[in-house]
Amino acid sequence: MKWTADDMTVFLREKQYIDTLLLPLQPVSFTNEMKQSASMQEFVEALTREMEKQFKGRVMLSPAFPYLKQEPVEEQLPKIQKWIQEAKEGGFSHIILITSDAGWKQVEKSIDGMLVWMPFVPFENLENSYKKQIISEQMKQLLPLLTMKWNE
């Protein structure tokens, strides 16, 4: 389900089936790492869009959680915990955080959800067909992760 009013109507009606929240974590920089931030956003967005398409009936794609890249990830922890907590109150039993920012790996244990870290592939100057191929390759790796999580 996408974060749109139309999909939300379906979600409210079929809540018992849609139990997974996909939450992208998006580092933002307005100085040195601006370009890297954009590349990450582009890659993670394409990937999450594809995941939403594959698992539309069970996964809700949340708007990304943005934070300043130059702040240490530890500072984001309390905030992200609040997001996770509220999502759980909202009925999502599986929370999947997806990011290209390796910083989150260090605090993975303190997060009450599944963290998926995907090293980003820069899409700059890439042809569309090649981008699609990259995303579908990454998807193949992600699919078993999700089905495994659901079978826990």
Binding site: V10, E14, Y17, I18, K53, Q54, F55, K56, G57, R58
Partner: peptide, 8 residues
């Protein structure tokens, strides 16, 4: 497209 809720 699954006729249930639209997964693939």
């Amino acid at each position: 497209t699954c006729t249930h809720l639209g997964c693939t």
